[in-house]
Design a protein around this nucleic acid. Structure first.
Lengths: 179, 179
DNA sequence: CCGTACTATGCATCGAGTTGCATCGCTACC
DNA sequence: GGTAGCGATGCAACTCGATGCATAGTACGG
């Protein structure tokens, strides 16, 4: 149930409407946790009932009104409690790996195409992360304490994409395909 | 719905009972796709109704009878069709990343403990993969064609664990903690 | 004035997967 | 004789998330 906690973190960093959160979950937070706006609204409703967050209606002109959510004291407690919880191992599910294993029974060229597509995705995300890294943390040796977590998450993303890229290259080479 | 296809691959490699499959999904296949025995039995039932697999009752002495499943012609077709399908990007959900991002609002020592635990997991899996690699593919330069897929999946596992390990070390260093 | 696009919020349905529980056969150990 | 443990199969309840659909206000271009 870590979507709840991802939302708490995001609201602790800065209060936001459901719509704002949905956009964050498509960008910065989305780098390590994905969620649709429907899911977010549903969970926000539950969290408000549990008094982990509180909403205030903000009237806007030029655009529809919105409900801005803020984390409560209870929410901060829950976030701290979660932070102190042991982290279960992550379960990986790789459809690409299934297809690789299915190579003797499947379509080699199509799998190569999938790997090429995956490679492009890794390249794009890596480029995006690298750009973010240079923009927000130009001095990698001196990252401010309060941004340490975000920086480490970004580093994890970069490492993961580099590795994904390297794996794709290894696959393509083994299958005798050009990049 | 790739559990279905993971089962098809496994049965194409060798026929097995639900129980056998459950063990495979805890070991070799489990390296890239996890499933509980309950889930496996449920899906096997559906797949038998769809005639992707067929069961034959095997009476054993010294242990309970079992139903051994084999892939059908339809199953092989479905597997080939799946293999030729574009692969959707993988959605990552990292609870550890949520906790890192939550560092300013949480328990630094507890997060360090989580990272240390995660590091041990990576070490163990890496050791297991490396051992498998040396045992089954002693000559990495000359892997037989029919085992190429399995080899590449194993390589992916090794790369991922090495990277996970490296990330943990980077985190521990940044947080000023020893290994 | 009409269509398109963006902001903003939500419901309803369905499938996949997790968790807990249950049953049965047989072996091995104390 | 009892019980712990493994092989073997499955049902039931529930949660999470994906997908599709619905609605409403406002801005802007043509």
């Amino acid at each position: 149930m870590a979507l709840e906690h991802a939302i708490l973190v995001s609201l602790a960093e800065r209060s936001a409407s459901g719509y704002d959160l949905a956009r964050r979950f498509d960008a910065s937070i989305g780098n390590f946790w994905k969620a649709s706006h429907q899911q977010i609204y549903k969970v926000l409703g539950r969290m408000e009932a549990q008094q982990l967050v509180e909403a205030s209606l903000v009237e806007q002109d030029g655009r529809p009104d919105k409900k801005v959510y803020a984390i409560t004291a209870d929410g901060r407690l829950e976030l701290a409690r979660f932070s102190a919880t042991p982290t279960p191992p992550e379960v990986l599910r790789s459809e690409l790996a299934v297809k690789l294993r299915a190579l003797p029974f499947g379509d080699r060229d199509a799998v190569v195409a999938s790997v090429r597509a995956r490679r492009v995705q890794h390249e794009e995300k890596l480029a995006y992360y690298s750009e973010s890294s240079q923009r927000f943390y130009p001095d990698a040796e001196h990252v401010p304490q309060d941004q340490l977590g975000s920086w480490l998450v970004l580093r994890g993303g970069i490492l993961a994409e580099e590795t994904g890229l390297a794996w794709c290259d290894e696959i393509l080479q083994a299958l005798g395909a050009e990049r």
